[in-house]
Design a protein around this nucleic acid. Structure first.
Lengths: 129, 129
DNA sequence: CATTAACTTGGATTGAACTCTAAAGAGCAG
DNA sequence: CTGCTCTTTAGAGTTCAATCCAAGTTAATG
């Protein structure tokens, strides 16, 4: 059992964000102490792990909430969940390829500027002599 | 010379966004007709190309504006520009590696669910018999 | 037991990047 | 010239994902 601060440390999310995620339906059924303090289980941590993966690959809060809701509805939603993850993976892969292309162009431009800089510094050195 | 709509089509950015970018300092010095309409040159399009690459690899509007400003200041900012692009490239590469790791975990989970779905559908088929 | 630190809530605020609105002017086909 | 569409501006509004605030409650420590 972990306090919200401990989970914050373990996941890298702030306590604020953890409460926000709960409010948005990303993590439901977190236990409480008799005083009302959140008590996260190892299973909660595991679920947060997947949530972070989805978030870090660009899935929106809404979509993650949808996925979590399906999970709660039981095994008859398995097909839909598989479909959801598959589509997400595809989108991410496409986006990464796209990014790589754009990054290649940046690299090309970078090389161009580096060469230009070399020429500029040489010219400057000549003037100095 | 291209109207804002033509540039919109060519770049995929809306006319709104093009005006917004201009206001934020991402594209300065766009010519106008005597009536005040924007007239983009091929050079403007080229500059927009790099801007889109930077944006699509996650650079913020502010950072791009900074880069553009340096460009206008002349060759003595070449070193800084090279540095800026180099750092950006590094950040993007790290982020992409990170994303790939997270995506791998999603794939793993996807395989898990796919297997679970297969078992579930089989069970259902048995019941049906 | 007293104090301090951590936690609770609902609702307001932030910041980034658009996105839209309204009112007016520009340009072109018929 | 008459419509019609396109473009202009300043400024307001939207969305997303947090992030903060205030006021109150609970737990932990000396």
């Amino acid at each position: 059992m972990y306090s919200i601060q401990e989970v914050s440390r373990k996941t890298g999310l702030t306590a604020h964000t953890l409460r926000y995620y709960e409010k948005e339906g990303l993590i439901s059924g977190v236990e409480r102490t008799q005083g009302g303090f959140r008590q996260y289980t190892d299973e909660d941590l595991e679920r947060l792990g997947l949530i972070c993966c989805l978030k870090n690959t660009g899935m929106s809060i809404q979509e993650i909430a949808r996925f979590v809701q399906l999970t709660h509805e039981g095994d008859h939603t398995l097909k839909e969940r598989v479909e959801l993850l598959r589509q997400h993976r595809e989108r991410v892969q496409e986006k990464m390829e796209e990014m790589q292309k754009h990054l290649d162009k940046v690299t090309w431009k970078l090389n161009f500027f580096t060469e230009k800089l070399r020429a500029y510094e040489e010219g400057w050195a000549e003037k100095k002599e």
